[in-house]
Computed example of a mutant assay.
Amino acid sequence: MARPARSVARLETQLRLERAAVDGRSYSVSARLDAVLDDGRHVVLLDDRGWSTSGPPGTSDRLTVAELEATARVVVGPDEPMPGRTRKEEAELHWSALADVLARAGIAATGAGLARLPHDVVLDERLLARVRR
């Protein structure tokens, strides 16, 4: 019997707190972007993203979920355009590259289709413990 075609249901960025100063002055977060398939399986699209920040004491204790979610979506792309490219061109290249990752995993997707998908952000327990509620 033929296996049913798999499709991408949504995107999910998983955030993990990598480092946080004891005094809360700085923190580093890693971000991994996955395609979540209609059967619940995950395919890693990007696993080399993240950010660090520093500021006055308590900076990492004033994080909000909304700020983390917004930053995560920026960090996993599309990136700012390279010289000579428009934002639209850079976005098309970004989403096309992610569709290519899925194609190598045997999953058909288009860049335009991926760009329209819901995009959830999931925080690990250490980040959740630091967010302002």
Rank of each mutant, 00 (worst) to 15 (best):
62 R>H: 15
131 V>Y: 02
12 E>S: 09
98 L>R: 01
25 R>W: 03
60 S>Q: 03
89 E>G: 10
43 V>D: 04
120 D>F: 05
120 D>G: 08
75 V>T: 07
107 I>Q: 03
52 S>F: 05
51 W>V: 00
52 S>R: 08
30 S>E: 08
87 R>G: 11
97 A>L: 10
22 V>F: 13
110 T>Y: 10
131 V>T: 10
35 A>F: 03
55 G>W: 00
117 L>F: 11
97 A>W: 04
45 L>S: 00
35 A>E: 02
130 R>S: 06
29 V>R: 00
120 D>A: 14
8 V>I: 09
113 G>C: 15
105 A>K: 11
87 R>H: 13
28 S>H: 09
73 R>I: 05
37 L>C: 09
70 A>P: 08
7 S>Y: 12
28 S>K: 07
83 P>I: 03
129 A>F: 08
125 E>R: 12
96 S>D: 12
13 T>M: 05
73 R>A: 04
133 R>P: 10
119 H>T: 04
90 E>F: 09
8 V>D: 00
89 E>T: 13
31 A>K: 01
79 D>V: 08
71 T>V: 09
87 R>Q: 13
95 W>Q: 00
100 D>Y: 05
115 A>F: 08
127 L>G: 00
114 L>R: 03
49 R>L: 03
83 P>A: 06
125 E>N: 08
30 S>D: 08
98 L>E: 00
7 S>D: 12
46 L>Q: 08
133 R>C: 08
4 P>E: 13
112 A>H: 12
24 G>M: 03
58 G>C: 05
48 D>E: 12
37 L>Y: 06
30 S>H: 06
109 A>I: 03
76 V>K: 00
120 D>P: 07
6 R>H: 10
101 V>Q: 06
116 R>G: 14
22 V>T: 15
95 W>R: 03
110 T>G: 15
11 L>M: 07
13 T>N: 04
48 D>Q: 06
37 L>S: 04
61 D>I: 05
90 E>D: 14
132 R>E: 14
42 H>W: 15
124 D>I: 00
100 D>H: 11
61 D>A: 13
23 D>S: 05
13 T>V: 09
131 V>G: 02
20 A>M: 07
90 E>G: 12
84 G>F: 06
115 A>M: 07
57 P>G: 09
70 A>T: 13
80 E>G: 12
67 E>K: 13
61 D>N: 13
80 E>H: 11
22 V>R: 14
7 S>C: 12
90 E>Y: 11
121 V>N: 01
130 R>F: 08
88 K>D: 15
84 G>D: 10
74 V>Y: 05
108 A>L: 12
6 R>L: 15
29 V>I: 07
132 R>P: 07
14 Q>C: 14
91 A>S: 15
104 R>W: 14
101 V>T: 14
132 R>T: 14
92 E>M: 09
52 S>Y: 05
